[in-house]
């Protein structure tokens, strides 16, 4: 794939300070199209801060983040004007929150939730919006008969799947996920992971997944970044890092997983 050789997302020296406290410091990496990167670390290690900076929800204190737009031109994310950035957020990107209540409109039906992005980019045909919504509900294994129910009537696992459908409906190229399986019970987690893995592979999505759960990282990601105290301490292919961790902290993380 010669056209895909330039990275989709390029982070250079990304730093976010809260006063003198460090959110994350000097994070540098490339993410290519179709690649899934897991960011792992314990609570307070800076992974969520990093995610909010990468997704332009917070401004970095230093560093540069470039994103290759659909026209192939890499643009500095913090030089985009607000209109361009918001358009990017609702078309080419997705953001899956840990708590689906943050990512969904709870008072609006599932169909409306999935259709919102389509309407935001100018779709004005009810029948087509509905058809697309039904198609996407099917792909995330939600029964068509639930299309007019609000997410309030959904279980936690269904809400999370609905949130994923809502994000993927505009065929984004990059999805940010913040603990996508957090707060779900184990069997539901397994199904969700299965589904996510299938969708990511089918659609050729690039994804940045923040998680403290190494099993999630192992199942979903190609590459992994281990963070501690706001810095990246180890990075590499997922199985390599998890099977043969170099840093003592990573070894500790891997060793703390119950088997």
């Amino acid at each position: 794939m010669p056209t895909d050789e330039a990275p989709l997302l390029m982070a250079r020296g990304v730093t976010k300070l809260y006063g003198h406290r460090i959110g994350c410091q000097d994070v540098t990496f490339d993410l290519h199209a179709g690649e899934v990167l897991a960011v792992v670390g314990e609570s307070g290690s800076g992974k969520s801060t990093l995610l909010s900076v990468l997704s332009t929800r917070a401004e970095p204190s230093a560093g540069r983040i470039e994103y290759r737009m659909r026209d192939g031109v890499a643009r500095d994310l913090f030089r985009l004007n607000e209109a361009e950035r918001r358009l990017l957020l609702r078309t080419d990107w997705g953001f899956v929150h840990q708590d689906p209540r943050e990512g969904l409109r709870m008072g609006i039906s599932a169909g409306g939730n999935v259709g919102e992005r389509l309407m935001a980019v100018g779709e004005r045909h009810y029948g087509r919006i509905r058809e697309t919504a039904i198609d996407w509900l099917g792909r995330v294994e939600i029964d068509e008969s639930r299309i007019d129910d609000t997410p309030r009537a959904y279980s936690g696992g269904m809400r999370q799947r609905l949130q994923i459908a809502r994000n993927l409906v505009t065929a984004p190229r990059l999805v940010f996920m913040d603990e996508p399986t957090g707060g779900l019970d184990v069997s539901v987690q397994a199904r969700l992971l299965d589904l996510l893995r299938g969708l990511v592979a089918d659609l050729g999505l690039a994804a940045i997944v923040v998680t403290h759960d190494l099993a999630v990282a192992r199942l979903l990601s190609h590459r992994i970044m281990v963070m501690r105290h706001g810095r990246v301490i180890e990075t590499g292919l997922t199985d390599q890092v998890l099977d043969d961790p170099r840093e003592p902290y990573t070894q500790l993380l891997v060793a703390s997983v119950l088997t």
Partner: peptide
């Protein structure tokens, strides 16, 4: 206000969508 400034009015159609769905 931001939505007005950027003419982001997709949300209004979500309301009409909900009407038709219901």
């Amino acid at each position: 206000r931001k939505m007005h400034a950027l003419a982001e009015y997709g949300l209004m159609h979500v309301k009409l969508y909900e009407d038709i769905a219901r």
